Simulated scan of single mutants.
Amino acid sequence: MKECIGIHYRTGRPIRLKWHRGNIEEIQELSDGIGDDLPYLAPGLVDLQVNGYGGYDLNAWPMEEEHVRHVTRGLWKEGVTSYFPTIITNSNEAIERAVGVISAVCDKEKGMDRCIAGIHLEGPFISPEEGPRGAHHREYVKGPDWSLFQRWQEAAGGRIKVVTLSPEWPGAGEFIQRCAAQGVIVSIGHTAATPEQIREAVNAGASMSTHLGNGAHLLLPRHPNYLWEQLAQEDLWSCMIADGFHLPESVLKVILRVKGEKALLVSDSVSFCGMEPGEYTTHIGGKVVLTPEGKLHLAENPNLLAGSAQTLKWGVEHLKNTGWCPLSEAWEMASTRPSRAANLPGREGLAEGAPADFLLFQRKKSALHLLKTYKHGDCVYHARNVKGDGS
């Protein structure tokens, strides 16, 4: 049996955590004052939406198995112990190949399979309209097609666990019911649906909103509209990109207050996440700039975002630093809440019998410094030249 000690992220009390064969066996609360330099202990981060990391794009072809491995290992350095590789709107064949590559990696390596909790299919069943469609290619957008989805699911080895779609299409309700019956989460996103269509989707089994507030028209009727309706639906989990750039602080605050325990964080990170500030060329030929402040924008227009270049840890820091919620709540938006939304084994967080997916980190002013990442009880990341890591 292995063990480490640290400060519980929620209670602020020192604990000893023991684990064996990949699961937490015991958590003991210790006396205060045993060490002022103890690190914090917290559940591993869970990201429902990852498009790439560290220069590796999961939607650029040809995608190789090593790309998936690089993204997974890179996310360990950011404290992510479970994630959903996200495949966006593309040709039927490209989507089939991409999910097949991810599935092949999981089949070959148990370590990768444990970290990849499922595949998130973001499109092509989304709105064709400008604004809601976002950066997705119009030529590949289409209505929900169950036989086509089953073809992709077969190529994925059954690993497609989240589907982002717009319920504005005819037949969307039946498609959502079929997904829900197979345990596939349907998330409403990139949508121009009417409030009535949103309500019908929820009644059919849709349970989530994809990056709420983004992938929308620039101008909407003041009310009703699809943003208000998703906020009002108590059964919908609301995913937010809290990088400080995608949503105004007022919108973040409203979502936090309205959705409560149903508010959670995603990164929606692209391949430039984890890279140094500078100018880069995308695989489709466009130039983008990653600023020292962490904003990724088109080189020709600083006002237009080119995706998210920050991880979940950044989002946690941003929410904590705004003062809208304590660190413990921000952390749970990026760990236990997404686990609950996706019904993952880690939904209980730091608890006896739960998977030994946890982190040790230090708090330094406004930043969180990761020391170690554990997945299934194995240390998959250890910061260099770090002392007092509690183990």
Rank of each mutant, 00 (worst) to 15 (best):
I15G: 04
K18M: 13
I24C: 13
G33V: 08
D37W: 03
D47M: 10
V50K: 12
P62D: 13
H70G: 00
G74W: 11
K77R: 15
G79Q: 10
N90C: 00
N90D: 15
E96F: 04
G100S: 02
I102F: 01
V105T: 11
V105R: 09
E109F: 14
D113A: 15
R114Q: 14
E122R: 09
E129T: 12
E130H: 07
V141L: 06
D145S: 09
W146H: 06
S147V: 03
S147A: 13
F149I: 00
R151Q: 12
R151H: 14
W152S: 08
G158W: 04
V163H: 04
T164Y: 10
P167I: 06
P170G: 08
G173T: 15
C179D: 05
C179R: 10
G183A: 12
H190E: 11
T194M: 03
E196F: 03
Q197I: 10
A204R: 02
G213L: 09
H217D: 07
H223P: 00
C239F: 00
M240R: 03
V254N: 00
G260C: 07
D268N: 11
S269F: 11
Y280S: 14
G286H: 12
L290D: 01
P292C: 07
H297I: 03
N301W: 01
H318Y: 15
R340H: 10
N343V: 10
G349N: 10
G353W: 04
D357T: 05
K364D: 09
L368H: 06
L370H: 07
L371H: 09
V380L: 03
G390K: 03
G390L: 05
